[in-house]
């Protein structure tokens, strides 16, 4: 019925329409600004400047996703831009760090999870109903595997 259900649409996700992302990212940043103002002691202006800096980092990352012919997810580019902008030897990194320090890390994930809750389909609900207990077992094994795996390798090289 809707083309949004077809795999071909993921092509559109990896090569985003920049204008579309610019507008939606601004809308999402405004929601984050309200959340940040509620969650922290930062003033609206401090939050606004901080989110504006993060907006620029995200947009640079999106532009790179668009123009660089390596097929990396946009989040990898955005993360990379954020790292490069704040390396100790990058000029102006102290300014960037000072501005984004007024934005709370976990608060930025809150609107995302709200959208995620609203986006759940009937099919996903049936998956959760039928395999919720399985996911719990798997989650325990995931954490155990990650922890013990790292401990074994660290032990070998110490």
């Amino acid at each position: 019925m809707s083309t949004a259900e077809l795999p071909v649409d993921y092509e559109a996700n990896t090569k985003p329409d920049l204008g579309q992302h610019a507008v939606l990212l601004a809308a999402v940043s405004l929601i984050a600004l309200v959340g940040n103002t509620v969650a922290t002691d930062a003033t609206v202006i401090q939050g606004l400047v901080g989110l504006a800096v993060l907006y620029v980092i995200a947009m640079v990352g999106l532009v790179l996703t668009h123009v660089v012919p390596i097929n990396l997810p946009s989040v990898a580019w955005i993360s990379l831009v954020g790292i490069l902008a704040t390396l100790p030897w990058t000029p102006g990194s102290a300014w960037v760090l000072d501005k984004v320090s007024h934005v709370n890390f976990l608060t930025l994930a809150t609107p995302c999870l709200a959208y995620a809750g609203i986006a759940i389909t009937r099919r996903e609900i049936s998956i959760a109903k039928s395999s919720g207990w399985k996911l719990f077992i798997v989650a325990v094994l995931v954490m155990t595997g990650t922890y013990v795996g790292s401990a074994i390798i660290a032990d070998l090289f110490l």
Binding site: G61, L62, S74, V75, I78, G82, L84, A85
Partner: peptide
């Protein structure tokens, strides 16, 4: 995306 940007910083 703003979260990932902050994460990089």
């Amino acid at each position: 995306m703003p979260f990932i940007a902050k994460f990089g910083t």
